[in-house]
Every structure is written in structure tokens, then in C-alpha cells.
Design a protein around this nucleic acid. Structure first.
Lengths: 171, 171
DNA sequence: CACGAACCTTTGACATTTCAAATATCTGCT
DNA sequence: AGCAGATATTTGAAATGTCAAAGGTTCGTG
């Protein structure tokens, strides 16, 4: 009944829109958005299926994994691009699951530092390996040179966007 | 105290990670993700500030805007890449606000078709114009040729990802 | 026509998300 | 010491998000 190819084609047409009369920047944006959504959802599915974890949890643990001494919640918030209040809940649940530990340093009692536990490190290491594989798999049909080129070009986009944020640039 | 440039640089370093030893596909993915997050958040802020609307609402209305006869909720779900259950609530709220109308066609009573109201069309038209401008603004520092190139290259990535989804490809 | 399979949407349980307001703590200045 | 302002986190309300299960409805076939 339903074939994979038909689905893919539909998705592309659907998200892009039947008409091609939009400005190039808009077209690019819509394609960036649908592509990251597509890949994100696949990663989400696999994280859930294979590790019982969510993508935000994975992201958060990734930051803690490379800072063995832990990070303040505010730092975590910036690095994961997630709001403060959100980090609170994420860390709470990860702590309940035993993957993260919270400590308030003596020097400054306003601060909470989150750190991976042993179990957290073990779990993350496994997830990270799988995660990297999934990405290589999903990008298998993209020429390595294109991967590099894209990395650099998207950097340009990012810088441009960063320089045109409403709150930034001056003040 | 806090300068915009410093923020931007930090963000880049932070999200990318201090070490550059990951596989190119992973690096590209992280950069795609952080860039779309950055732009999404800016669009979200502006939609909220200028129109009191949310990004998912905008996305949903965009689909309805180009299908004047309306769409079934299942279709909406596919096009917005959002789950069925989620669409239910989104449409409910938009209906409560008077921007969308729900109808069950006579032919098939399982189906619900969502349609923009007059107010919905008016609002969306205004948002769409602004939205397109924001994107041109945020991508102002990207060479038009690069915009085109990116559009096409990201298409390759998308196709590749689509062909390597867990559920797709065969069966 | 009846019944089981397929289809479409909703519901319910949770997790994530944002924003704004509230808490708590620290710092600098007088 | 003491207080205003800056910092850091939590909380609360509302929206969005997923998934799985439940509700209806329609369809094909016996």
C-alpha cells in the first residue's frame, strides 16, 4: 500500500510547498527546518528504543560528559540552548534516574552544580557511540566534501543570524 | 558588561564543543542543530512579541493557508511533522481563538477538516510577510549563491537521511 | 448483513518547552 | 553593619511534544 519512496517524495513536496515562488532565504530555512526535524525525530526514536532516553537528556548529558567536574545549571542552560527553568526539571529527572548528581558548592550557595554519576558516564558513552553511528549512517549518501562544505557554509548562516538577533548587535 | 560578540563566540564554541575531534558528520549535525535552534528561537520571540502567536501555530496556519479548502488533521500532522495527538490540541486552541474552523464532512464521519477562518487568513498573511523579512534579515550576510547552494546541498542531506530511517527503505 | 481489519481522531500519561514571577544568595557601597 | 542591585535557581502556568491506547467509523469480504 504505502511505499517508502512515496512517503519521502511527499514529505519533500509537502514541507517545501507546492509552489516555488518564495524567496530563497525562506526556501532554505524551510528545508533546514524540515531536515533537522526529520533527523531529530529519528534520533529521538532510536534513543528511546535502544536506551530509553530522550533527546534533551542526551544533549544535557553530552555537556556534562566533557566537563567531568560538572557544570552550573546556568552554564548548562546556555550550552544546551534551553531555558533555566527547563534545565531544572531535566536535571531533576536525571537525578531521580541516578545519572546525574547535584551539589551546592560551599563558596556560593546560590549555585547548583550538576555532574554525571558513574552510571551516567557509562550510559552516555554507549549512547554517544551509537549516536555518532546513526549520523554517519543517515548521511551516508552525502559526499564527505559536501559534509565539510556544509559545515562551513552553515557556519556562515549561523554567524549572520547571530549578528541580526533582536536583542544583540548593540545596546 | 556583556557584549554581543562575546556571546556569539561563546555560543559557537560551546555548542560545537571545545575539542574538534568528532567525526565530520557529527560536527555538521551539531552545527545544523544549533543553527536551527538559534533561528527558531528568534522567530519564536518575534512571533510572540509582534503577533502573540507561537511557532507551531504559525506552522500549522501556513499549511492551511495554501489549502483554502482545509486539510484533514492527519494530513496536517504529516505536513507539520507533528504527531496526531498534538495536532488535536493545536487546532483546538486555534479554533478557540477564532482563527481556524473544524468541520466533519458528510461523506466520512471519521474525518475532521480544519480550515482557516477569515480572521485566520488575515493574521497569517501579516505574519508570513514579517516572517519572510526576518529570514532575509537574519541571512543578510550570506551570499545569495551560498543560499542556493545550501538549499541544494541540504536537500542531499535530507534525501540521504530519508533513505536511512529505521522504518523506511524497505518492508 | 455481519464481522474483522483498516482508518481517523481523540484521550491520557508524561516529558519538554517558554516566559514571568518568586526565592535565595552574594556583592559593592556607604 | 546594612541595603540596593546583581546573580542563580526554582516555581507555576500554559503550550507543545511523544507515545500508546481507546473511540468511532468505514470497508471488504464472506
Amino acid at each position: 500500500m504505502v511505499e517508502a519512496e512515496a512517503i519521502n517524495v511527499d514529505l519533500e513536496i509537502i514541507v517545501q510547498g507546492a509552489q516555488g515562488r518564495s524567496k530563497p532565504e525562506l526556501r532554505l530555512w524551510l528545508r533546514m527546518l524540515s531536515t533537522t526535524k526529520l533527523i531529530s525525530q529519528e534520533i529521538r526514536r532510536r534513543l528511546r528504543a535502544e536506551f530509553g532516553a530522550t533527546l534533551p537528556q542526551f544533549d544535557l548529558m553530552a555537556q556534562l560528559y566533557r566537563e567531568k567536574d560538572g557544570l552550573r545549571l546556568g552554564e548548562l542552560s546556555k550550552r544546551t540552548m534551553v531555558t533555566n527553568g527547563n534545565v531544572t526539571g531535566l536535571v531533576e529527572r536525571l537525578e531521580a534516574d541516578g545519572y546525574v548528581q547535584r551539589v551546592t558548592p560551599d563558596g556560593d550557595r546560590r549555585v547548583t552544580v550538576a555532574k554525571l554519576t558513574e552510571a551516567g558516564m557509562t550510559l552516555f558513552a554507549a549512547m554517544a557511540t551509537a549516536h555518532e553511528g546513526w549520523l554517519q549512517d543517515m548521511m551516508a549518501d552525502v559526499d564527505p566534501r559536501m559534509v565539510s562544505a556544509l559545515w562551513s557554509e552553515i557556519g556562515t548562516v549561523k554567524t549572520s543570524a547571530n549578528n541580526h538577533l533582536s536583542g544583540a548587535a548593540f545596546e
